[in-house]
Structures are given as C-alpha cells and as structure tokens.
Design a protein around this nucleic acid. Structure first.
Lengths: 239, 239
DNA sequence: CGTGATATTGAATTGCATCAAGCTAAGTGG
DNA sequence: CCACTTAGCTTGATGCAATTCAATATCACG
C-alpha cells in the first residue's frame, strides 16, 4: 500500500508543462520565471478521505489543486457538518490571510496539489505584481459562487437544491466524461452532497429517486447520474 | 422634501478628514495622493429603502460606504429573497469584476457612499500597488464572513441563527450606542432579519419573544433589543 | 464470497412555514 | 395637535417539507 503525502517522482510535473497552469494562479507568473515558482512549491498527493488541513490549525501553507477534488467544510461537535464548497483543478484553497485555517480541507477523490508556504506569498506577489491581480480575480469569482450557495441554502427547496447541484457540479466535476455530455459520475457520496446542500442523505436519496421516477434523471450504480431532461432540471433549479 | 441621490454640499468630506479612511480601502492610498482618489469619486447619498444598484444591471460603478448600512440581496420572481450580507461604513460593495451586478444593493438606513467608476479601478491599482493588497485582504475577510453565513444557513436552527445574529450584528451595527454596550438598536426590520437568516418574519418574532420570556434578551420598541444573558446567547449560537 | 460502507425505503415526528387576525407605532394630512 | 393611515410586529391555528429513527438493500473490496 502506497504511503500518501509523499512526493512521487513519477508524477512531479514542471510548472512549464503543468496541465492546470493556463487556468490557475500561476498563469500570472511569466514563463521564464517559472523556476522561482517551482522552487517555492512542494507537490503533494492525498488519497481520498485524507485531511489536508484542519480548521483551527495554524495556517502555514496554501494549496493549488492540480488534480482531483477537495472539499472545504466545518463541523460542530454534535456532528452537523456543512461543506462550504469544492475545489477543482486550477483552484486555490487555504489562502485567506488568517492566522488559522477557517475550514477543514479534505480530499474527495485522490488529489494532487502544489503546496506553498504562506510566508512565500508576499515575496511572490511583490516579484510578480500580476499575481495579486489574478488572486483578486479568483477571490471575486469565489465570492460569486458563495453568494449562489447562500441563496441556495437560505431559500431553495430540496428539489431545487438537487437540480441546481446536478446542473452546476455534475457538469463541472466530469467534463468530458460520458455520452452526450449529460451523463455524469458524481465524485462525492450522498452524505457529501447532503452536507453541501444543507440536507440529509435520506432526503438526497429520496429526491434523486423521485426525479428518476419522473424520468428527469436516471440513477445508476457507483454514483452515476444521467441527466435526461435538462430543461426540466433547469426550470426546477429556481434560477 | 429633500431629493436624494444628489451631492449635498454640506456633507462633502475631503478624503483627508474622512471618518472611515482608517479602516477603508482608501487607507492604502498615501496621504499626499488623496487628491487623485477624491477626483475619482462622487459622494452620493441614499435614503432608507432606496435601491443603489440592481442585480443584472451593467456594472459601471463600485461603492464605498461612509455612513449607514447597505444590504445586498437576490430575489426570485415568487418573492423569495435572500440577503447575502450587509455592508457597514468602511466596506466596499459591487466591486467584483463581473460585467453585471450580481446582487441588488439597497439602503437599510440612510446611507452615504463614495461612488467610483469601475473603469478607474485599474488605473488606481496600478498607481497604488498597496491598493490591490488591501482589496485582496478585504475580499478574504468577506469570504470568511460568507463561510460563517453558509454554515448558519445550512446547519443552524432558528434559535441558533437568531442568537448568532444578535451577537454578531447587534454589536457591529450599533457600536457605542446604549448602556453597558449590551443594548442594541437593530437598524433592520424583522423582514430583513428573516431574509438574512433564511427564516420568515413570524419565526424571527416568535424566537425573539421566546428568548425574552426566558430573560435572555429584552425586546423594546423601535427595534431595540437588550442582550441580558450574553453567555446563554453565546452558548446557543452554536459555535 | 463475505463484510463493512453506502444507499434506499418506510413510518413517525417536528421545526418552521403558511394562513389569518389583531396589535402597535410612526408618519401624514387636515 | 389629533385622527387616520399604513407599515411593521406579534400571536394563534394549522399544514407540510424535511428530519429522525429504523430497517433493509446494494455496492465495493479484500
């Protein structure tokens, strides 16, 4: 069994040939300076279910996702858990300038990241002023996503929540997978979907089977969902 | 009756003597360059209930609150409304780099703002690199607040929501008002509280009277609330 | 092929919403 | 300055969407 959290020589990628560079914050670093960036980061992998950073711990690193999906969440001692959001390849997490991490980050799938010391960030942004503009842009985009999520949690019904989720994350999570682009393999469990949408697993399950009975979706094995009637889903997503 | 939305000569403030400068984004502009900033902005007032920007409109300006409170919200055609957050003096809104405003902004109290053309922002940030760092810091702080709100909406009960709100916004909204620092005059209506917390006005009212019966708070006239047993409130806020 | 983790389904419960009055306070115009 | 008006707030009765509790079913994996 492979030990995780270790650099795996096979998978070390140079920044120049990185698959997420185009969409990631590193796109703000000029090509000829990528060496500076590469020297600042460690490439770290995590296996599904592994905790990457823990809410409340001293915030020493920030991360860039290069492969896989990360969830950011908070839990109460009584077990109530809310997932604030997911991070996909090219997205950053644990970057807010606070002394302690504000959320726990956990690998939803096997994940590859670049880890940077936060202390290095100041030096990087002063070396590459574009970087700050890029970080700001990414932060604003996150804010828009948070506002969407706030509306969903505060005012949408279970059906609307699920419809929104299937359209929004189904697509994002599995671009390029499945026939006709409307068959998605959800990477997250029912519990994770529920903890994201402010529901229970039972309710998620019930809504999915009810949508399937109405032939709006199909529910297959291993978290595959077919989006049959996207128009209905869109209408019921409450937009 | 005064016409709103007009510059009122009496209340024009120079940036140098602005009451919110210390805490606002303009603190990143050196004192000797405040003239540049002042020439970029219009000071605009809004009366309680006035809409400042409308969701979906072309995003031409961003605003800095200098007095009063602004709410940011989205509505569905069926009337469901969710307030994403409030903006207090020194805070920015409508600044995310999108072509259209993502939320409606409305004055909760009489409000004074500085309005800037978005087109000017690029020039300002390139003139004052500190500004970008400040904007990023403010954006991250907002993100933390959004995460708090997401948890509240997704996982807290009505009582926990109200307790959290009273502690968090009661204090913030009325610093310096009232005896012993624990008597707050909520500036927002029950409907606004409800639309912020994902509840109905009736539930807000019921929870408040129930907390009053338990002598945890007192509910007075004109939205004044006395926080009697702050420890109980803190415990029940679900932190 | 068995075992633990995930997912579904059913029945009962409940927290909050909805519907429906009434009440209170703050304006507003006479 | 007072009666009228209306927006805002409270309270009560009832309904229902989603949770909770409890089995069972199915999948993934060694």
């Amino acid at each position: 069994m492979m030990i995780s959290n270790t650099k795996n020589a096979d998978s070390v990628t140079s920044c120049g040939s990185c698959s997420v560079r185009a969409v990631s914050f590193c796109s703000a670093v000029p090509h000829r300076d990528l060496g500076v960036l590469a020297r600042s980061r460690h490439q770290i992998q995590f296996r599904r279910r592994e905790t990457i950073v823990r809410e409340g711990d001293a915030a020493v690193s920030f991360f860039n996702v290069t492969a896989g999906i990360v969830k950011l969440y908070r839990s109460l001692s009584d077990g109530r858990t809310q997932i604030m959001g997911f991070r996909f390849p090219g997205e950053l997490f644990a970057i807010a300038e606070t002394s302690r991490y504000g959320t726990t980050a956990e690998a939803v799938t096997d994940v590859e990241t670049c880890r940077y010391p936060r202390a290095r960030l100041k030096r990087l942004t002063s070396s590459f002023p574009q970087l700050q503009a890029k970080l700001l842009q990414m932060s604003y985009r996150e804010q828009v996503a948070s506002d969407d999520h706030i509306f969903l949690l505060g005012r949408k019904t279970a059906r609307e929540k699920i419809a929104t989720f299937l359209l929004r994350y189904g697509r994002e999570a599995c671009q390029g997978i499945g026939g006709k682009g409307r068959h998605v393999n959800l990477p997250m469990t029912r519990t994770e979907v529920a903890d994201f949408l402010g529901l229970t697993t039972e309710t998620v399950s019930r809504v999915l089977t009810s949508l399937a009975r109405e032939s709006i979706i199909t529910v297959g094995v291993s978290r595959s969902v077919g989006l049959i009637d996207i128009d209905s889903l869109t209408r019921m997503s409450g937009k």
